[in-house]
């Protein structure tokens, strides 16, 4: 069996922001993405989870080429993203954003919104019209919607429009940044089913960013857990959910509330400390909240440990190869 090709190769990507703390107070540095490496296999769905402020949306924008890297490299389909021109990039990789109310320009018609990537490639006239109509039909929208404005559509319909726009150039990679977080649960299910159908039909590679672990578990093949700008654990979905090794992953999984009555509310045990990307703790960056923390965690920075297709960055966790054979 040949190894599947690598669609996205992120190599030690960093993105810092300087934030002004007031005109004369100087600046502070926010380390939004602080040395992330990951590989997304062609045709897979790669999930990135974490709390707000962990850098997952910044990472998404780096992968889409919407933000330049501070250091490191991102290769998409073997080419450096930074060296690609914007039209070539658009044909390869497209976004779907969280809020379909702010991701569609309220001044444009649906046809113009979905047709924009085509226009940018110089495709106009009848061909543009046919391809827009085809794509609208494919995402389950009536053709008559083409002349409407976004304000006339429901949230679910808008997200379908955003998906149609992302797919109209037939890209190979779609970066979904919280694609269902702003939607009602019944609509969320429609959109997740649609994304799954489209992946099968077009052979898409997804990068799927979400704070909802149940959704990530349902749609992703691999999951990376981000904390304060770094990936602290990364594994195939089933293994991550069965045998989480990083204390943060365990806390995240424990806090998922499934609709199963009688289980009560879990005790997550993370305390009230709040992660601040402008003020990253020494040693292990998770130590102020870690329920299992030991003295070395305060001073010693953990290095990533690899094994059995998994990665974990924790001083206390056993090496991944043993973790995967001893289920908790």
């Amino acid at each position: 069996m040949t190894k599947p090709a690598i669609a996205i190769d992120v190599q030690d990507a960093k993105r810092l922001f300087t934030q002004s703390a007031g005109a004369f107070a100087g600046t502070r540095v926010v380390r939004a993405v602080d040395g992330v490496s990951l590989q997304v296999r062609e045709g897979s769905c790669f999930g990135i989870v974490g709390e707000s402020g962990c850098g997952k949306s910044t990472l998404a924008r780096l992968i889409m080429g919407l933000l330049p890297l501070s250091s490191g490299d991102i290769l998409v389909d073997g080419q450096r993203l930074s060296a690609m021109d914007r039209k070539a990039r658009a044909r390869l990789i497209q976004p779907v954003f969280q809020d379909p109310f702010s991701s569609l320009n309220p001044r444009h018609s649906i046809a113009d919104l979905v047709g924009l990537p085509l226009t940018a490639q110089g495709i106009a006239g009848r061909e543009r019209g046919t391809r827009v109509a085809e794509m609208l039909e494919r995402v389950g929208l009536p053709g008559a919607i083409a002349n409407r404005q976004p304000a006339q559509l429901s949230g679910g319909q808008r997200q379908r429009v955003a998906i149609a726009r992302a797919l109209v150039l037939r890209p190979r990679i779609v970066v979904c940044d919280e694609p269902t977080s702003a939607l009602d649960v019944s609509v969320q299910a429609q959109i997740l089913n649609l994304l799954a159908d489209l992946q099968a039909e077009f052979g898409l590679t997804y990068v799927f960013i979400s704070h909802n672990l149940a959704v990530v578990e349902h749609v992703c093949d691999e999951v990376a857990v981000m904390y304060l700008g770094r990936i602290v654990e990364h594994a195939p979905t089933a293994e991550l959910f069965e045998t989480p090794t990083h204390p943060y992953t365990k806390a995240l999984l424990a806090s998922v509330l499934t609709p199963e009555p009688g289980l009560g509310i879990p005790d997550v045990g993370l305390g009230d400390a709040y992660p601040d990307p402008a003020n990253i703790p020494t040693g292990c960056r998770f130590h102020p909240r870690c329920p299992a923390g030991q003295p070395p965690c305060i001073t010693e920075t953990p290095a990533p440990r690899f094994g059995a297709g998994r990665m974990v960055e924790c001083l206390l966790a056993p090496p991944p190869s043993t973790a995967s054979v001893s289920p908790v």
Binding site: L66, S103, R107, L116
Partner: peptide, 26 residues
């Protein structure tokens, strides 16, 4: 900072287009 500007950038639209068609009307 709205996502539709990011979506237009990702669509490969030119800066000129983004300024005139995405930002100015709004």
């Amino acid at each position: 900072n709205l996502d539709y500007v990011a979506a237009a950038q990702a669509s490969g639209a030119s800066t000129w287009h983004i300024l005139l068609r995405e930002i100015l009307p709004n």
